[in-house]
């Protein structure tokens, strides 16, 4: 019968201090390739073909050609799958830092 099997871990935790970060003061840098938000850094490259909007599974993107050319991204509908980034023929979409 074993009663104090957790004791070793508990003592270790007590002496080692917290494992969590003090978040707003100390941040973990995101991993490379993190899918944070979809950005179009250079809008002049976009040809407004609308492929991204058609591939989007959650209707987060709307592309209009008339009367004004416009690419619209709705962040709260986006599920960050990256289908648009992959499909873009001009490669003008990319993933960015989620805090932007």
């Amino acid at each position: 019968m074993k009663i104090v099997v957790m004791l070793k871990t508990l003592l270790f935790n007590l002496l080692k201090g917290p494992v969590t970060r003090k978040y707003p003061y100390e941040e973990r840098p995101p991993f490379p390739g993190e899918r944070g938000v979809i950005l179009m850094p250079d809008e002049s490259k976009c040809i407004y073909c609308g492929i991204c909007a058609r591939k989007c599974p959650s209707n987060a993107l709307t592309v209009t050609r008339t009367p004004e050319k416009e690419w619209k991204y709705e962040r709260f509908r986006c599920i960050l799958c990256g289908a648009c980034v992959e499909a873009c023929p001009k490669k003008c979409l990319e993933f960015g830092d989620r805090k932007k």
């Binding site: 390739g33 993190e34 993933f95």
Partner: peptide, 24 residues
């Protein structure tokens, strides 16, 4: 304690695909 260990695998998934749970 167990969920702390679980963070390691979440990190591995995030680093390899860019998402913690929804790997896509």
């Amino acid at each position: 304690q167990i969920w702390r260990t679980r963070e390691h695998i979440m990190d591995a998934m995030e680093y390899t695909t860019g998402g913690r749970v929804m790997l896509s």
